[in-house]
């Protein structure tokens, strides 16, 4: 290696020593508070015992609203029967006729085949639920995949 090249190597690494930590820290702090990863179901998630409402199958997936015996907890049971054609999908709950996920609540992220369980709130109570809808949202392509009335 020639002398100017050795100097250039060192200059580049001094610059990278600043840029890489700045990049890593900025990216780390840009992870949203309701990070998509934290909303992947925990491995210990199990179905609540009572099925409150069942919805018809929609091609590759189906879902149900579940609750416990005293109706104090609510859960969205999401079943991917087939591999999704959108591998980076999230489920948002929004008000009926408002498909903007920024106005809604992120319930969770789904990936491969299988069942997913996401905890819900009082909006899942039968009297309230008809005023809400689920939006299946592709966060890589930033677009709605499906909108399902609850």
């Amino acid at each position: 290696m020639i002398k100017p090249l050795r100097k250039k190597h060192l200059q580049i690494w001094v610059a990278l020593a600043v840029l890489i930590p700045v990049g890593i820290i900025s990216a780390w702090f840009s992870i949203p508070p309701a990070a998509k990863d934290k909303l992947l179901q925990p491995t210990s998630a199990v179905a609540l015992p009572v099925v409150l409402k069942t919805y018809p199958s929609r091609g590759g997936f189906e879902f149900n609203i579940r609750t416990n015996t005293d109706t104090t907890q609510f859960q969205l049971e999401w079943i991917n029967n087939k591999m999704l054609t959108y591998p980076t999908a999230t489920i948002y709950e929004t008000r009926l006729n408002d498909s903007n996920v920024q106005h809604g609540k992120l319930l969770g992220r789904i990936e491969a085949r299988g069942s997913y369980y996401f905890m819900g709130d009082s909006t899942f109570i039968p009297n309230n639920i008809s005023t809400y809808q689920l939006v299946l949202y592709d966060f890589i392509h930033q677009r709605n995949i499906d909108i399902i009335k609850l």
């Binding site: 990049g23 890593i24 990216a27 780390w28 840009s30 992870i31 949203p32 990070a35 998509k36 990863d37 992220r109 966060f139």
Partner: peptide, 8 residues
């Protein structure tokens, strides 16, 4: 950092 780390 801006990809997989954001949701992994």
């Amino acid at each position: 950092m801006l990809g997989v780390i954001q949701y992994e």
